[in-house]
Amino acid sequence: MTALVVSRILQGLGVMLAMSLIVFVGVYAIGDPVEILINPDADQATRAEVTRSLGLDRPVWEQYGLFLFNALQGDLGRSFVFNMPAIELILERMPATLELAIAATLLAVLLGIPLGLVAGMKPASRTGRTIMAGSILGFSLPTFWVGLLLILVFSIWLGWLPSFGQGETVDVLGIPVSFLTADGLAHLILPALNLALFKLALLIRLTRAGVKEVMPQDYIRFARAKGLTGRRIIGLHVLKNILIPIVTVIGIEFGSVVAFAVVTESIFNWPGMGKLIIESIYMLDRPVIVAYLMVIVVLFVVINLVVDLLYSALDPRVRLKAMPA
């Protein structure tokens, strides 16, 4: 167990190092951020001065070396655009993204697994077929389009829900969250639904496939023959056996939801990290881009670790061993 955690941390550090190098060189190759940041009528001397003050006049390997040196002391650099520590900018917006991602994942799980169970138990029924048809829509409609449609229907036509932003927040342990106020909750519904849609469809299909595979097995028939109630058979015998792939997918999907909530955040003007990274890329704000990807790497490492631990909780046959890094 400890060995697993240690090896994962080492792996994560390796990935972070590689990632920082790739991003650093990549952003460097795109071009000079000063060209984007400065007002167009600034004279050449001013441009040179800005380039120098941002440290962009040094060779790229020197810039990278300086970055690594500072990063080891916990300083990931200051945003060119905001002149604030990059990590602070990101962490400031992380709660909003996490809240959205958790809300979306909860929606997907709470709706997806029951719907998948129904569709799997009665695949030929009208309900089952309707659920499956719906899941195809969830897969195939592009997120931004669904997002705009949701705004059009619920904000503009019906006027029920606000069209953008996070709404009123309250601080829980110093972290601002939306879901505890009525106004915040109203703001959360549409973006969470938008973000959940794809995963919802995925979970329906996974659950249904699992159920169809498990139902004809001997132990289910035996459980039936013993006279167990349907509820107990599904809740204990079926669910527990189909959960392993589902947990994996939820884990992976949670990571990608956090990392790629960009589209939803942009459409709903949700003040999260995704919106920040997109704007930072437009401005070639390298410190923020690099720091953001670092945070994402850490996030994926943690999620994978949690998923591994959950496996062993769900299936005692799975033993945790450190893989050779």
Binding site: L148, I151, L152, S155, I156, G159, P162, S163, F164, G165, S266, I267, F268, N269, K275, E279
Partner: peptide, 18 residues
């Protein structure tokens, strides 16, 4: 003064009265 960079979202926010 709210920043809404996405054009469609900004227009929608006005239309919905937000």
């Amino acid at each position: 003064l709210i920043a809404i960079p996405n054009d469609a979202t900004r227009v929608a926010a006005l239309l919905s009265g937000d």
